[in-house]
């Protein structure tokens, strides 16, 4: 059995999750408690990949990053760097598709505690940076972690957009979902079954752990007399 799809999937989902963690948290923190005109429109755009078919996202990414696209052509000319049909394309697809899940969780997490807790820290002379790292981030962490698990699971399962921008190149862009599809196509049901079972195992453990962990956290904050 060739395990490259597993390693490739973990690498792509792992990197995408890191990117989404940073940007999802940042956007959520900036937007969660500030009111400004156009906020709802920005939020709708950020959430759009959740409701669009992944093929539409893939089409958009192919347009942007294709060798003749606005971003793709610049990268090609300046750095001789191609994104389409590489694993980096798969990372971009997974990032965009999973982003709304992190944004949604993080947004809820930052609105979930009393704002005066941050205000109190500010009146005590703490810089905004210190308040974020010592107050906001730890208090939002349970929600952020939940978002991370969902993001990772979604990135791991990404198929449609990945196929469109990264294509199916064995050992190069062959993630588990792609491996399953093409194993079925070529009648290799043994490999298909193996990958199906393994991705079910990963997804199930992630959700199970998340449920167990968040349940434990709720207990900690309510019954700790």
């Amino acid at each position: 059995m060739n395990y490259t799809p597993l390693l490739l999937s973990l690498k792509i989902a792992g990197i995408a999750t890191c990117i989404v963690l940073v940007f999802g948290t940042l956007f959520a923190r900036l937007l969660a408690r500030n009111q400004f005109p156009g906020k709802r429109i920005i939020e709708s755009i950020l959430m759009l990949p959740l409701v669009l078919p992944p093929t539409v996202v893939g089409f958009g990414l192919l347009y942007l990053f294709g060798n003749n696209g606005p971003i793709g052509s610049i990268l090609m000319q300046a750095f001789d760097f191609q994104i389409v049909f590489t694993w980096i394309g798969a990372v971009i697809a997974a990032t965009v598709v999973a982003f709304p899940l992190m944004y949604q969780s993080a947004s809820a997490a930052f609105q979930n505690y009393d704002r005066n807790i941050e205000n109190a820290a500010l009146t005590m002379g703490a810089s905004k940076f210190r308040v974020f790292w010592t107050i906001s981030f730890p208090l939002a962490w349970p929600g952020l972690l939940a978002g991370l698990v969902l993001t990772f699971a979604r990135a791991l399962g990404e198929f449609g957009a990945t196929l469109m921008i990264a294509g199916y190149i064995p050992n190069k862009t062959e993630t588990i979902p792609l491996a399953i599809y093409f194993a079925v196509e070529t009648g290799n049901s043994e490999a298909a079954t193996f990958w199906v079972l393994s991705i079910i195992a990963v997804g199930f453990s992630a959700i199970l752990w998340l449920n167990w962990w968040s349940g434990r956290n709720i207990l900690k904050f309510t019954n700790d007399k």
Partner: peptide, 13 residues
């Protein structure tokens, strides 16, 4: 300026 909030706003963590 010190500020004591109505619900105290202690850092729960």
């Amino acid at each position: 300026i010190g500020y004591l909030f109505q619900d105290y706003a202690l850092f729960p963590h």
